[in-house]
Design a binder for these strands. Structure first.
Lengths: 338, 338
DNA sequence: GTGAAAGCGCTAACAG
DNA sequence: CTGTTAGCGCTTTCAC
């Protein structure tokens, strides 16, 4: 089947391309009869307007980029569902980019967006990202950016997050209420606001219980699972080991459980665990995992909606917009009072 | 910052756009000195060539589409990693589309690709998909398509799959070897080749053990978790209930475990379970889950490589190409001999 | 109500 | 080695 463009279609109809174009876009200056005829023949010839020819004229591609550290992670994959839900009907298309937690990769990806490949960007930054100049530059070139979850607080762009401080506080408080007196915190970055805010909440909970916060109990994990295993094992093998753990991201669950297994520490008798996680199978872990579950879908959806508004040019959200959607503590066996 | 195009850049340099274009693409007809100068000023003015203007000329967007039923699923999200790994260096970009297991949605998505939005398509079809005409049509329009995992056998396009028959056989055989005599199979479709092939393998294993295959023991699950729960519960509540289950997709794990929990059937004493799954936390479930783990990353990567070859126009893979990458049975507690 | 012409930004063919 | 021209496919003035 030959690819048929508007010129070919026009020739078939004995009309000019201009007329055909107008008919297809239901312009009022075209007679109903002609429109009818055009539509019919277009369908018959299987005509599909070239998306990027229109893009070139309109200066917009109807593509948006979603930049995330990793897709094999419930939070991000569910967030994608939310993004897709917001975008679906609007005839936008979603390009996914993975940074694999690398700042260099994030930079490289964003640099490419100056080319007009996408009309806007949704981003959750890598663990390594501290400096936001690559993002500011993009904004300076009039490419709208909306942050979700992992935001850069000093970059002026709308943000959608969960209540990280409260979540960290609630998680730690829950363990304290269930009898823990020595709680460790597993972070993922020293710079990322989500990690820091969650940690600050954890610290506040300790303080509210008049417990001292020890730097030794706060580990910064990396994307390297083996290294995390070693670090956590070291922490839990100590004489004076913690009796509770707040893990700030989903993919630490496996490691924490494995370490406990290896050290023959039973959860929750020897140590209680709360983990930030969106895994629906948390309930069938051994033991079932108490989670702080983020509204991943809603975060993705809200972020996409903000971006769509930014693209609309009218009633664009202020760069100071910040939407906070609370997380939920779901209590299960891993934090049960002994 | 104003958007600078090649014309503006040329004016700045006192050169013609053509010369600038050639210099930027490192043409041999341009002097080293000029190239140098162009590159410098380009960087200084922050020039980025418009991606879709080039697309329009080259008749290719360097975008490819990945169509999957669902992204919040380890198999698919890991497969995306594989796709991305293959595509990364090649300067292609990945558009993700989710069908949510709906045929109508799959059709609508594909229809849109006649517009040239993407240069090629990687697809894993929905559960509902039986007819491949929407895909054939696209191929007829010269948009290369490569199937991965969930293929349509009667559509002529390269395919990358795992050895579904063997996997089903191995899974069932493993349960039989561990003492099961009445095994149920949870499928996801009556038409999908992966489901049918896995089921055929399961049936063959039963036959090899001189056991009868009963239709009552083969359930077709849907995307509706609550409905699956009811159906599986009904199956396991029967007087003559199965003593083993082979579940053909990852997201049935939760339901199976929950049903057993509700019915107070203990795994593996009362019933043994094997599930197709790529979840890395299978090991910390209660009990640890025996899985048939698919080479998700490799499947994604291989499929993307085939598609890239198809895009290259030279040494395009034959439509009959079929790559089979074996899955792996990982034995854990859920199938342990009592 | 319809058509001719120009241009979105880029590049290949061809001249000079 | 550099510049002119034309055209990728579409749409939007502006004529008619």
């Amino acid at each position: 089947m030959k690819k048929v463009n508007i010129k070919a279609l026009a020739k078939e109809l004995n009309l000019s391309p201009a007329t055909v174009s107008k008919a297809l876009r239901d312009s009022h200056e075209i007679s109903a009869a002609t429109k009818q005829r055009v539509l019919e023949v277009a369908k018959q010839l299987n005509y599909a307007p070239n998306a990027y020819a229109s893009s070139l004229r309109d200066r917009r591609s109807r593509n948006i980029a979603v930049i995330i550290p990793e897709v094999a992670d419930s939070f991000f994959s569910i967030a994608i569902n939310g993004i897709e839900a917001a975008i679906e009907e609007k005839d936008y298309h979603v390009l996914i980019y993975l940074t694999h937690e690398l700042y260099a990769r994030e930079q490289a990806i964003l640099k490419d967006f100056k080319s007009g490949r996408v009309d806007g960007v949704l981003i959750s930054v890598s663990r390594e990202t501290t400096d936001g100049s690559h993002i500011s530059e993009l904004i300076a070139e009039d490419v709208p950016v909306v942050f979700f979850d992992r935001v850069l607080e000093n970059v002026e762009a709308p943000k959608v997050v969960t209540d990280d401080f409260n979540s960290g506080y609630t998680g730690a408080m829950h363990l304290l209420d269930n009898g823990c007196r020595h709680i460790a915190f597993l972070g993922i970055s020293n710079s990322l606001s989500i990690s820091n805010n969650r940690m600050a909440g954890y610290q506040q909970a300790l303080k509210d219980h008049h417990l001292t916060v020890s730097p030794d109990d706060m580990i910064t994990c990396t994307p390297d699972t083996a290294a995390n295993f070693t670090a956590i094992k070291q922490l839990l093998a100590k004489e004076n080991r913690p009796d509770g753990i707040v893990a700030s991201v989903e993919n630490l669950t496996n490691t924490v459980y494995q370490v406990c297994n290896e050290l023959q520490l039973s959860i929750p008798q020897d140590i209680k665990v709360v983990c930030f996680s969106n895994l629906d199978i948390a309930a069938i872990l051994h033991p079932p995992l108490t989670t702080i579950t983020q509204p991943a879908f809603q975060i993705g959806k809200a972020a996409a909606e903000l971006l769509l508004k930014s693209l609309g040019k009218k009633d664009a959200p202020s760069p100071a917009t910040q939407i906070v959607i609370p997380s939920e503590l779901i209590i299960r066996g891993s934090s049960k009072r002994s």
